[in-house]
């Protein structure tokens, strides 16, 4: 059988030429077009970083970094001016901490319910609703805080100010909750079914299986969702500007008006400071600080995801 195939005469008249390499211009154009589009976002990011660095650098030629980073008074527009950024950082941390305190337990509980307990029908109803919540414009949340949450708080705590950190923390918490719930749900559902079965086969209850096997196995994804939500809360602007006000303040309570870094940027961008002055430059240096904080959180969450991801096949 094989010998017949080998003994077949070579057909010289049907020579197949494979030396036909040419440049395919259409292919080249499409490839360069796609690369250019990808480049646009990279260039934009680079330009933003360069501008932030440049303006920040000239700011620090007038103001000592120590005063900026450790000063506790933020009065950029009035004389005598003072450029201690801590009140803005404090305002941001206060709102973020409050938001995390609300969003992390509720978000994680929702994720556990959705991935481990809810029937298919319930999950397919609840998840789109959660995603809808994530799609509401943030200014609506701010408005909601001002016209609904704050009056409600006032009935419980009469002394609360019209603009206060509490109300801001609550709405930012509600805002990042779907993010935690959705991302944590995905992380838990990525835990292989065989692990759950292994636990059940040892006589574990649903609760034991969830808290002691599934949650530890999906922990890296859950932690990453927390960090991304915190990073989002730190960068959140409109809701906190509307809810928490514009008073740089190192208040320990949630009841007074504060100002976050983002709210300050809004205030200045709306025209409170003449272009080119020192107050104008504070815009960039605060933005740079904000950028560095959120960047660090995002890098950290990526690192946690990669470092602690268990290799399941």
């Amino acid at each position: 059988m094989y010998s017949t195939a080998l003994n077949r005469p070579v057909l010289t008249d049907t020579f197949i030429n494979i030396n036909k390499r040419t440049i395919r211009w259409g292919e080249f154009l499409i490839q360069s077009g796609l690369a250019l589009c990808a480049l646009i976002s990279i260039i934009t990011t680079a330009v933003i970083i360069i501008i932030l660095c440049k303006e920040g650098f000239s700011f620090f030629q007038h103001i000592a970094p120590a005063e900026f980073f450790f000063g506790t008074r933020w009065v950029p527009l009035l004389e005598p001016s003072s450029f201690g950024v801590l009140p803005l950082v404090w305002g941001t941390l206060l709102v973020t901490f409050g938001a995390a305190l609300i969003a992390i337990p509720i978000g994680l509980a929702s994720a556990i319910y959705l991935s481990e307990y809810a029937s298919h029908k319930v999950r397919s109803t609840v998840k789109p609703v959660l995603e809808l919540l994530a799609g509401i414009p943030t200014v609506v949340y701010g408005y909601f805080a001002l016209t609904f949450v704050t009056p409600l708080l006032k009935t419980i705590i009469p002394g609360i100010q019209v603009f206060n950190a509490f109300s801001g923390a609550i709405v930012v918490g509600i805002m990042v909750l779907p993010m935690i719930a959705t991302l944590s749900d995905n992380a838990l559902r990525a835990v292989p079914q065989t692990l759950r079965q292994g636990a059940y086969a040892l006589g574990a209850t649903s609760y034991e299986t969830t808290t002691q096997v599934v949650l530890p196995a999906g922990l890296s994804g859950v932690m990453a969702s927390f960090l991304l939500a915190i990073s989002r809360a730190i960068g959140e602007t409109m809701a906190v500007t509307l809810a928490a006000g514009a008073t740089p303040n190192m208040s320990l309570t949630f009841l007074e008006s504060i100002q976050t870094m983002t709210a300050y940027i809004v205030q200045i961008s709306l025209g409170d400071a003449p272009a080119g002055g020192l107050a104008y430059q504070t815009l960039f240096v605060v933005a740079a600080l904000l950028f560095i904080i959120t960047l660090m959180l995002n890098v950290l969450s990526q690192w946690i995801l990669n470092r602690y991801r268990e290799a399941y096949d």
């Binding site: 692990l195 079965q197 006589g203 530890p216």
Partner: peptide
């Protein structure tokens, strides 16, 4: 009382 070993090894992490 009735334990089970599965097709693919599934140790806990």
């Amino acid at each position: 009382h009735i334990g089970m070993v599965f097709q693919k090894p599934n140790p806990f992490p």
